[in-house]
Structures are given as structure tokens and as C-alpha cells.
């Protein structure tokens, strides 16, 4: 069976390599891709949108419609994960677990029982195996704010550096995932609840599509950001660059929230009771 797989992969790979023989040469200035629209993008991007990074301009302005549906795809990935994994009927456990943080001794308290009110050294835990690790917890505490500021920097500087909504959103989501790993799922849910996440990923798509719809209301085409000039009090070229920024923020929020909801669902198998 192993050999069969190997042969199949080998054949497919050879077919792919055979297919690439017909491609135009790398960097060929006469190939169809570099004679049709690419010269327009390269020459006109700066005067059309005043964005130095051509990739960002193509992604969010010239091909903004594509990117809107990419965001919608990510949104639907989050929704699909929610529907497939989330267990809507929650089984209530009738006991709670508390652990003495120093020694690791765990108490199981049945329903109706109470810890003595002076017991500050106990923390509530989710499952018996929930690990406690001082080093990871403290490092996480110190690193998370800097990861978040870096993520917002990446979102805000999509015009000038390789970045933008998708990358920044992933890093921002990863910072929340790091919080959930270094502490536990319970405190992560306290900070970023499931409802808040749902609100955010809807908000992200809404910001993107709403910007496009606003352009229609102002009398231009869908996602033609130069119409925003009248609201933002700038000239149409700068308005296109600002429109790209607004759209990137929407993408960033959506991607962040979907990352977090995917983590929550996958890690607890939809039960929301225990994390990694």
C-alpha cells in the first residue's frame, strides 16, 4: 500500500513537471501575464491610489471584489467549524475541580460544597490534567502586548510594507491563542467570550461590504473608494488609499475572530470545557 501511494505521487509529480515545460520563461517580458494588465498596475498604481505597495493596491482596490469574497470564505470557514463541532447542548458537570497551585494537589468538590473563603491559593481548573507552568504563564504575560502591537502595526502599514489585514489578523489572533495556551481556556473565554468573537467576525465582513455599499450610496460603483472623498474631506486619490486602509482593518478583525473561534472549537472539541 505504501508503494502504491509512492508510485501515484511520483506519477502525478512527473505530470506536473511535464506540464510546466509549456510555461513561458521566468521573467519573460513578452509572456501573456506581463503584457496585459501588469504594466498598467506597475505604471498607474502610484498616481491612481498613492499606495507605494502595488500588491496591496491590487488586492484591496483593483481586485477588491475578490478580496471581499475571500474574507467571506474565511467567515464561512468559521461558521462551518461552529456548526460541525460546537455542541449546543451542554452537559453540566455536577462537581468542580480546584488545585493548590504550589503542590498540585487537586480537590474535587461535589455539588453544594464550598471552598473555605480564605483559600486564595487554589485555582479552579477544567480537567484533571490541566497543566500549570509558571515559566510559560509569565512569559506569555510579558510577550502578548508586544505581539498585539506588532499585529496592529502590520495591519496599519499595509501600504508600505509586506503586510495587511490577513497577516496582521493572523498575528493578532495568534496572540489570543497564546493567551489561551499560557493561561487556560476559562480565563481566555473571560477575556474574549464566544459572543464577542461572533460579533467581531460579523463586524469585519460588515465593515468591508459596508464600505462598498457606502460608495454606492455616494453615487459611485461598488467598492470605488474615490467616492469616499466627500466624507473624509480629502482628494479622491488619497481617499482611495484611506479606503484601502478601512477595508484592511475589516479584514484584520474578521481574520482575528475566526482564528480565535477555530482555536476554541478545535481545542475543546466543541465542548468549551478545557483547552490545551
Amino acid at each position: 500500500m505504501k508503494w502504491f501511494g509512492f508510485i501515484a505521487v511520483f506519477l502525478c509529480g512527473s505530470l506536473f513537471i511535464y506540464g510546466t515545460v509549456e510555461f513561458p520563461g521566468w521573467g519573460d517580458p513578452l509572456s501573456p501575464t506581463s503584457t496585459h494588465v501588469s504594466p498598467y498596475y506597475i505604471e498607474k498604481t502610484m498616481e491612481d491610489t498613492s499606495v507605494p505597495n502595488i500588491v496591496t493596491a491590487v488586492l484591496a482596490d483593483y481586485r477588491g471584489y475578490d478580496t471581499m469574497f475571500e474574507t467571506a470564505v474565511i467567515f464561512s470557514a468559521g461558521i462551518a467549524c461552529l456548526f460541525l463541532l460546537r455542541q449546543m447542548k451542554r452537559k453540566k458537570t455536577d462537581f468542580r475541580l480546584y488545585r493548590h497551585t504550589a503542590t498540585g494537589i487537586t480537590f474535587r468538590i461535589e455539588k453544594g460544597g464550598k471552598l473555605p473563603p480564605t483559600a486564595k491559593e487554589f485555582e479552579r481548573i477544567d480537567g484533571l490534567w490541566t497543566p500549570y507552568d509558571l515559566i510559560i504563564k509569565t512569559t506569555g504575560r510579558f510577550i502578548i502586548p508586544f505581539i498585539q502591537i506588532f499585529a496592529l502595526y502590520v495591519i496599519a502599514h499595509g501600504h508600505h510594507s509586506p503586510g495587511g489585514g490577513f497577516q496582521g489578523g493572523v498575528i493578532l489572533g495568534a496572540s489570543f491563542v497564546l493567551f489561551a495556551i499560557s493561561h487556560d481556556l476559562r480565563s481566555a473565554l473571560n477575556r474574549m467570550s464566544e459572543k464577542l468573537t461572533a460579533f467581531f467576525y460579523t463586524l469585519g465582513v460588515y465593515i468591508y461590504a459596508g464600505t462598498g455599499a457606502l460608495c454606492i450610496l455616494l453615487g459611485a460603483n461598488f467598492l470605488d473608494y474615490s467616492a469616499l472623498a466627500t466624507i473624509l474631506f480629502v482628494d479622491p486619490v488619497t481617499a482611495r488609499s484611506h479606503g484601502i486602509l478601512i477595508v484592511e482593518i475589516g479584514v484584520g478583525i474578521a481574520v482575528m475572530a475566526v482564528m480565535v473561534i477555530l482555536y476554541y472549537n478545535l481545542v475543546s472539541a466543541g465542548k468549551f470545557d478545557e483547552g490545551l
Binding site: R141, F142, I144, P145, Q148, I149, L152, Y153, A156, H157, F179, R191
Partner: peptide, 21 residues
């Protein structure tokens, strides 16, 4: 523009995570 974006971002992150740092 970038300075004001920075102020907004720092306010957001400080609101989210000042109790961590």
C-alpha cells in the same frame, strides 16, 4: 496619519492587555 493610527492602536492594546504587563 501614522502617528494617530499609532495612538489608536496603543490605546486598544493598552486597554486589552495592561493588566497582563
Amino acid at each position: 496619519l501614522h502617528i494617530s493610527l499609532g495612538v489608536i492602536s496603543c490605546l486598544i492594546v493598552a486597554f486589552l492587555s495592561s493588566d497582563l504587563l
